[in-house]
C-alpha cells in the first residue's frame, strides 16, 4: 500500500451506481463528463445475467450517458472469455436475452456448463442434464452466485442456490466469473495498461463492488444509492476506502484528491 501510485483507471458499477432501473442517479451524466476530462481510463463493470451488452448500452444511451460499447465489461463477457480460453462448448443456462453475448461460441455436444439467472431453465430435466455433464468432467462456470433478487412480485431465487446444488451433487467447485472475483476486476483492466494499485472502483454493493475491488488491490468507494442499506460498510474488513452519498461526490473526490 505504501507504494500506491497515481490514479490511472476508474471502474464504475452501472445498476445502482449510475442508474436505478430506468432513471439516472441525479447529476451522474455531468459527473461522468467531468471524470472524462481527467487523464484516467474508465471501464464500466457489471454483474449482469439477463441483459446483453447491447441492452445495457441502449439503456445508458437513453439516459444520456456518454459510454462506448468497448468500455463495458460484464460478467457475461468474462464468461465468454473463459469459454474461449478453455476452448469448450457450453450448455448455456442463461436468459434468452443474454444469448447474443455468446454468439459464435459452439454449443453442439456440450462439454461445459454455464449458469446465469435463468428461471426458465432451472427445471428438473435441465438440472439433471447439467449435472450429468459436470459429473463427466465438464467445468461448471457461474456468472455469479447471488442468493436471490427482488422481483415485482417479491423475492426470487438467484443463480447461486442452483450453482451450490450442482456443486454439492458433483463434489466440484464452480468457477465464478463475475464480481467479487479478483480475476473479474483484473480482466476488466486488461487493455487499459493500468495496474490494480492505480485503480479505484465505485459501486453500491459493499461486498461485490468494494470488497471485491479492494481484495484485487484497488481502492473501493461505496456509494449510498441503489441497493445500499445502512451499515452495509460494516460488512467488509478492511472497510471501504471511502463512502460517498452518490456517484457525483465520488467523482469530485477523485478529481480533488487522487490525481
Amino acid at each position: 500500500m505504501a507504494a500506491r501510485r497515481v490514479l490511472k483507471a476508474v471502474l464504475v458499477d452501472l445498476s445502482g451506481t449510475l442508474h436505478i432501473e430506468d432513471s439516472a442517479v441525479p447529476g451522474s451524466q455531468e459527473a461522468l463528463k467531468r471524470l472524462r476530462s481527467a487523464p484516467v481510463a474508465i471501464r464500466f463493470v457489471t454483474n449482469t445475467t439477463k441483459e446483453s451488452k447491447r441492452d445495457l448500452l441502449e439503456r445508458l444511451k437513453t439516459l444520456e450517458f456518454d459510454i462506448a460499447e468497448d468500455e463495458i465489461f460484464t460478467s457475461l463477457t468474462a464468461a465468454r472469455n473463459l469459454l474461449e480460453q478453455k476452448q469448450v462448448r457450453p450448455l448455456l443456462l442463461v436468459d434468452n436475452n443474454a444469448l447474443q453475448d455468446f454468439r459464435g461460441i459452439p454449443t453442439n455436444d456440450p462439454n461445459a456448463v454455464v449458469v446465469g439467472l435463468a428461471p426458465e431453465h432451472f427445471n428438473y430435466q435441465m438440472m439433471n442434464k447439467a449435472f450429468r455433464l459436470i459429473l463427466d468432467g465438464a467445468p461448471l462456470i457461474a456468472i455469479h452466485k447471488a442468493r436471490y433478487y427482488k422481483r415485482k412480485d417479491g423475492l426470487a431465487l438467484g443463480p447461486g442456490p442452483f450453482v451450490t446444488g450442482l456443486e454439492y451433487a458433483t463434489d466440484t467447485k464452480a468457477t465464478v466469473v463475475g464480481k467479487p472475483e479478483t480475476t473479474f476486476f483484473l480482466e476488466a483492466l486488461s487493455g487499459t495498461g493500468c495496474k490494480p494499485e492505480e485503480t479505484v472502483m465505485i459501486g453500491d454493493d459493499c461486498r461485490d463492488d468494494v470488497g471485491g475491488a479492494q481484495n484485487a488491490g484497488m481502492l473501493g468507494i461505496l456509494v449510498k444509492t441503489g441497493k445500499y442499506r445502512a451499515a452495509d460498510e460494516d460488512k467488509i474488513n478492511p472497510a471501504p476506502y471511502l463512502i460517498c452519498e452518490s456517484f457525483p461526490q465520488a467523482v469530485d473526490h477523485i478529481l480533488q484528491h487522487l490525481l
Binding site: 442468493r147 436471490y148 447461486g160 442456490p161 446444488g165 456443486e167
Partner: peptide, 8 residues
C-alpha cells in the same frame, strides 16, 4: 443445499 444457501 440450494435452499440452505439461499436462506442461510
Amino acid at each position: 443445499k440450494a435452499l440452505e444457501y439461499a436462506c442461510d
